[in-house]
Amino acid sequence: MDWNDFAAPIWLSVQIALVSSILVFGLATAAARGMARAKFFGKPVLETVLLLPLVLSPTVIGFVLLVALGRRSWIGQAYEWLVGQPIVFSWIAAVIASVVVAFPLAYRTIKTGLEEVDGELQEAARAYGANEWQVFRWITAPLASRSLVTGYVLGFARSLGEFGATLMIAGNIPHRTQTIPTAIYIAVDSGNMSLAWAWAGVTVLLSFLMLLIISRKQCP
């Protein structure tokens, strides 16, 4: 195997993790802001739905996504009509799988941090005429910065290691949808343990760096 074939899953995994972690961070932050202090009928049910992918098997998640976004679904048909290619077995499918799997982990982390912010400070800022964006930018985000950073990093790390859902909906197409986890699976299945170890080592290194960022952020 040449260098390009070895590096392709690594570069693809990093790309998918970067894009999906940004999407996860935005969605999780918005959902956490809405749920942190809100009180409404059915909140426990909605909270359970948001956290459900955290306890579901990635294979089950991938199957549900395959049915929801496949070529027989109206979403899949509409996307294929607009873009000219199906969602499944594409780079976008890998991103979607990573977003769904990583979202609840980031959401729970960020929501915990937002709930710890003093609500009186936020109300005082609103009383002085600050809009919701200004309250979040100048009050909430700085006070919950540790949770926000941790949520983003955990979303990135979870996206980087996603396997089951990605394999179900995106497949294992070299240079297109083959990520590090799926590449390791194929290498082990074919008996190429040295190659599997090399990819595994890269994953461990990247994950270690992500956890190091969290540790440095949480240490005073």
Rank of each mutant, 00 (worst) to 15 (best):
T179D: 02
T179F: 10
L114P: 06
T177S: 12
G129Q: 09
A97Y: 12
G171L: 01
F156S: 04
G119P: 03
G155P: 07
A127G: 15
L154K: 01
A97H: 10
W91T: 08
V135A: 03
V100G: 04
G161V: 04
T109V: 14
T177I: 04
A127T: 13
A157C: 15
I92L: 15
A130G: 01
W91L: 14
I75N: 02
T109K: 02
E115Q: 14
I87F: 11
P174R: 07
K111E: 15
L82K: 00
E80F: 06
A170Q: 03
R176D: 09
P174Q: 07
A125R: 04
V88W: 01
A165H: 07
E80Q: 15
A78C: 05
L105C: 08
W91G: 01
I139E: 09
I139W: 11
E120C: 00
N172P: 04
R126K: 14
L105M: 14
A125P: 04
G164R: 03
S145E: 10
L105R: 05
R108G: 10
G155N: 05
L148V: 00
S159T: 05
I180Y: 06
F136Y: 15
V95S: 07
V101K: 06
H175F: 15
F156P: 03
H175E: 11
L143Q: 14
L148D: 02
K111Q: 15
G113V: 00
A97W: 11
E123N: 14
F136A: 09
